[in-house]
Design a binder for these strands. Structure first.
Lengths: 206, 206
DNA sequence: CAATGAAATGAATGATCACTCAGTTGAGTC
DNA sequence: GACTCAACTGAGTGATCATTCATTTCATTG
């Protein structure tokens, strides 16, 4: 097993032409750095080395492009958390450690995508938000299921599962805002520590 | 002692004319809801019931207005954390509980201001960011001092104080994004729970 | 080598952007 | 009742915004 780290801006996606993939990657970087509304179509296309109008060969609108990015980020996040649960054992603490690690890692490996997905969801139209809501809800439900099960069988003990999950998720969500590959704490350490914090938060008080 | 909750958009500020205060409050609400770049000068001044040009009687520019709001939020946050430390006893766990409670409460009582302060710091110019940096740094240092002291005297035990503080702060910072006064969990419960989580994170493993 | 079609150009569209400024309003002061 | 002054109006400025579209480029295919 290699300890190789990936610092791509976009997770692997099928059915994506090279030109589209390059557009998406650039958009993720610029939107992630400055925000959707702060980046103009001219800014975006100049960064790719093209004219503004070329955007509309690939997407219907700037708004539509954002939708695709947020959708991509939300689905990727769900995929990673889902997989982590599948690869965990049946013990609730192991499961929680697994999904929190996946959650944090997703936000650190693809920081710009995570920033866009988190920050710019409110910039989507109501219809667009509805289209993304399901995938996000499913990810939340996985956390809820794991914590609830841990509470039922006595592994965890916490006054409010909702608050605990919000707190746990917050650590990972915020991580993409401050962590960089140059940080003195390597990604693996952050992932490990934050997973431990999650377990401490829901730990049974004996 | 009353248990009265305040849901104003702006903390009390001296030396502020009524017209300016109204402008600031509206700006905090609109910028907090949609983001600085998504709100035009026309949007902002229409919400106050004035012409766009009237803005420039009160501030030099839209950018300058943002600077004042972020500065306000950053200083208020520091004030609250500072005060909480002063009002705590000498025991590190009590101090940590106090400053975390103040941190979370500041983000819940003034959600829009917190959102603007957190999200839009990157929208400031470099000079403006530098002007805000000191106040923010001082707040961080308070957390650092409390945790470090707790570690030295054996109350706390954690592999990395930096990571623990980031995690603890994240819970409060994110809270202004999801909590509302209509939430089933009242503010006091969130504040109390999150303070407890903070103590659990840095707790000595015996 | 002619035909095709995906990809991008370059110039234009009207709308909206932040911002300016000379003039108006109206409440308070001498 | 003339004067002051903070607050705001209303009509504009040029720049930039997202978007459109007829045309061009160029690698691939028949």
């Amino acid at each position: 097993m290699t300890t190789e780290q990936s610092f791509n801006t976009m997770p692997p996606v099928e059915d994506l032409t090279e030109a589209r993939r390059r557009l998406f990657e650039t958009a993720i970087q610029l939107f992630g750095a400055s925000g959707f509304h702060a980046v103009s179509v001219k800014d975006l296309m100049t960064a790719i080395g093209q004219q503004p109008g070329a955007l509309y060969f690939h997407v219907a609108s700037k708004q539509d492009l954002l939708m695709e990015l947020v959708d991509l980020g939300t689905r990727f996040h769900r995929t990673q958390v889902r997989r982590a649960l599948l690869e965990s054992g049946s013990a609730a603490p192991d499961q929680l450690r697994g999904i929190v690690a996946a959650h944090v890692r997703a936000h650190l490996e693809y920081r710009d995508l995570a920033r866009v997905t988190i920050r710019e969801r409110r910039s989507l139209t109501e219809d667009q938000q509805a289209r993304v809501a399901d995938a996000h809800q499913e990810t939340t439900q996985i956390f809820r299921d794991v914590v609830d099960r841990g509470i039922r069988n006595g592994d965890f003990q916490v006054p409010s599962p909702e608050l605990a999950i919000r707190a746990i998720a917050s650590m990972g969500v915020r991580a993409c805002e401050w962590w960089t590959p140059e940080d003195p704490h390597p990604m693996a350490e952050v992932v490990d520590q934050y997973s431990t914090y999650a377990l401490k938060i829901v730990a049974r008080v004996s």
